[in-house]
Design a protein around this nucleic acid. Structure first.
Lengths: 277, 277
DNA sequence: ATAATAGTGTCTTTTAGACACTATAGA
DNA sequence: TCTATAGTGTCTAAAAGACACTATTAT
């Protein structure tokens, strides 16, 4: 019989965060160095315990702020902050060697931040290209996952955030702690598929962005090259996706480009279809 | 700091099941009558505690068998049984008045069963049309959600499984227990959207089925009418979706129809697009 | 000048949808 | 016969994709 309050096995419940951004033409995830056993010294996804009277989403937002300095909603402003959604829950017995831990993973999509992370209580958080964390396991299929011909998307050039001199001990090696490789894989796949039928790509962009910048998000996340002309026509023709902000910029070089903000639409119709190989 | 093993708040972890089937031209969910407080006498989704050394999916499969007699995998055979996947996790403090309960909801899609449920330890499980459980809350948009013009899909005709004489106290009234209305809503929406880009509609069908029977699944779940001719051409032309089993049947009346089994494809390309209103 | 990116127009191929028409069963 | 469902063919409209061409900046 369900919900017998007297004798239930005790579980610890945590939230783990798959925090993704597009940085230097690569899809990057936020990882932290573990300071304690188990897996001491290994890299892991940020996360922590859910508190006694705390909602799951609130716990995820709190950990995001504590460990990374990011905010899921900018306080006092109407700026959207980063996108946060529940991803999946992982509760295999033995995934933590000490006790039974059920972890509710969340997916966070953030624009590129100037400094990697600041103000966190985990000192050693950093952005690392997903291609380095999950070599060749990113997607079932060909191994050319992160190469987009002709757009300068080149895997392997990334040294994470300027500290990556050759032989740097700070560069993550080997799999992530616990089952975080699998959680990260699921999060990346969720992000890839959600770009198709939602306006979530704008979550990777600053508040104002150009069509070209948005296109580079798609190209980096999907690992494909997209025709700039057809992309422009499609994305500006999808109702509710983009609204012109009035300004222009030349920060990408070339002819000045119109600046846009994210429109109100969350579901795209028609969807942006990912080209098949 | 995450993963401090000493002091963590204790949680109870349960699995809840959104079990859906297509029955009498209506999308139906499995609900059980609660025999104990809280919400004693109210209807709820089947579910129960996750055991000490039990995986989440295993707990869902076990509860499915215990409370409904369904099996996620037919023992000793290669028959696929029903489809089971994780849906989402609900952990708002106070969702259970007695203690902190985090529930990992799972979605189960099953073919129509002859008897509603058998061999369960919850005696009062039954199929109820989703339209009766979630009146007008099924989908944001027009209220014509469950009407499919010209195909006999008529909401409100369903009396759940023959026992629904007028005034029957066994007919669920009012919202489900706990936050199960929301969980059911999420499960229905997941099923609706997954029909578009996956071959999951076959999970609602018996092992061998006709194109017309598959079409009725789409019509009932989406609440729309589909052109039989275009539907036939599209599903038989999608590679890996259907494989002919060789036989034919006249169980739907009319000209004998070819029988098919589900093909190996799980992701449909091109997808079956849900018509917009 | 050249090179870069932005943006529009046009053509072709593919796909979705409407619907006429034929096929084969039961009543 | 009539009516039901099954299945094919064909036409049209919409969308996707290839790509020529113009526009506007920086160097």
């Amino acid at each position: 019989m369900p919900y017998d309050p007297s004798a239930f096995p005790p579980f610890a419940v945590t939230v783990d965060l798959v925090v993704l951004t597009v940085r230097r033409h690569a899809l990057c995830a936020l990882v932290v160095r573990r300071g304690e056993p188990p897996h001491k010294g290994r890299w892991a996804l940020p996360g922590g315990f859910v508190r006694e009277r705390e909602d799951l989403a609130a716990a995820a937002a709190r950990e995001l702020g504590e460990e990374t300095g990011l905010r899921s909603r900018e306080p006092g402003t109407e700026r959207p902050g980063v996108h946060l959604e529940q991803l999946a829950t992982y509760g295999e017995p033995g995934r933590d060697p000490r006790m039974r831990v059920v972890s509710v993973a969340h997916l966070v999509l953030a624009p590129d931040l100037p400094a990697p992370v600041a103000g966190g209580d985990a000192g050693s958080a950093r952005w690392v290209p997903v291609a380095e964390l999950l070599p060749a396991r990113s997607t079932p299929g060909s191994g050319t996952e992160t190469s987009a011909t002709g757009t300068g998307v080149s895997p392997g050039e990334g040294d994470a955030d300027g500290a990556g001199t050759p032989g740097d001990p700070e560069v993550p090696r080997g799999p992530l702690a616990f089952d975080h490789d699998r959680i990260l894989t699921d999060g990346v796949e969720r992000a890839r598929s959600k770009l198709e039928y939602s306006s979530l790509a704008t979550a990777f962009c600053p508040p104002e962005f150009t069509v070209g910048e948005l296109r580079r998000v798609y190209e980096v996340v999907w690992g494909v090259a997209l025709d700039p002309r057809n992309f422009h026509r499609k994305v500006t023709g999808t109702p509710g996706f983009l609204v012109p902000s009035g300004g222009t910029t030349t920060r990408q070089g070339g002819r000045p480009a119109q600046l846009f903000r994210a429109g109100g639409a969350t579901l795209l119709n028609p969807p942006m279809l990912r080209p098949e190989v």
